[in-house]
Design a protein around this nucleic acid. Sequence first.
DNA 1: CCGAGATGGAACAACTGTGTTCCACTACGA
DNA 2: TCGTAGTGGAACACAGTTGTTCCATCTCGG
Lengths: 182, 182
Amino acid sequence: MTSGVKNRTRQAIIDAAIHLLAGNPACSLGDIAAAAQVGRTTLHRYFGERADLLAAVATEGGERLGRAATLADLNRGTGAEALLRLCREYFDLGSLLSLMFSGQAGECWESQDEQFLVGVIERGRADGSIDPALPPDWVITLLWSQLYAAWEYRAQRPEESRHHVLDLLTRTLSNALRQPPS
Amino acid sequence: MTSGVKNRTRQAIIDAAIHLLAGNPACSLGDIAAAAQVGRTTLHRYFGERADLLAAVATEGGERLGRAATLADLNRGTGAEALLRLCREYFDLGSLLSLMFSGQAGECWESQDEQFLVGVIERGRADGSIDPALPPDWVITLLWSQLYAAWEYRAQRPEESRHHVLDLLTRTLSNALRQPPS
DNA sequence: CCGAGATGGAACAACTGTGTTCCACTACGA
DNA sequence: TCGTAGTGGAACACAGTTGTTCCATCTCGG
């Protein structure tokens, strides 16, 4: 399979790009090629110019986000439950979170996928699992910011178990969305 | 007053740097100079090299954070109340939030000022206003991420009143920190 | 073994950002 | 009016990134 090698190389470059761009959106193509254990010439063979690579990264990110949303089975349970399941799936996307959150390569997915999120949140506002005083857009912003916070928190504390951080994230996010008792 | 002019120019450069660096940490000195309505030569006269400007921005940021903390009168009320007051003060720091949150120039303040935050949070955990299950470090991360979220939310919606966004922020943050009823 | 596909390295020109020097201009007080 | 502090622009050398070309190497299947 000749195209098998090509796909593997292409994927290695994209993976390296995701990790490096997450840490430094202005990192050089040489750094990305090195991280992918690939010559800079080869990188340019696959992605003519920087913008092409960024576009491929954005596409890859969009696909991963889509798969996570599918896994989350958003139609089940209350709106808040669905949102928390999605949050768990997103959490495992790792450094892709930084990339999406900083919005460097995230313009591609937002326009489409943000809409289904609004739907889930509206459902939660209707069934009482999400405080109706919170606009859906604000809930989305909150979701992303807490996801990024959890990712950062975990990245700086290797001794913390993934499960513990995920538990903190779930607890604070579900609390934040709940209707106040007053 | 000969130094009055110099101070004004210096401050204009730092202000411009804060705003531009918040949007793009890799922006050029030429852009900053243009935003400050100052020649690139003048910018280099005040800050020999890029690192000098970044250091000045970090210092300025540290001072503004310190003033905000003073205004928040952190010894008054429960830990959660004090934290929310601090949050309101921080909210008005504007684009400085992005800069501190992204941590590009924020290494300077963190080591010192993060400690008093831990103290306030510990107080809240002791007096029951903050869920003791949340580690202080996580609360700090949460505080910053929600502040940044609110700032982003507001920046993208000029029609929203400052008060309304601040209200959303206060509501979700105080909810997130509260002990769950179960 | 051989040839095609895939790669890596060297070298190159173009561009951008940086830091510096030099000179002309403006404003303001003595 | 003159001198000085503050400034802006032009020009320069330097470094890093980018995109390109050319050639050598490697690794397969036939």
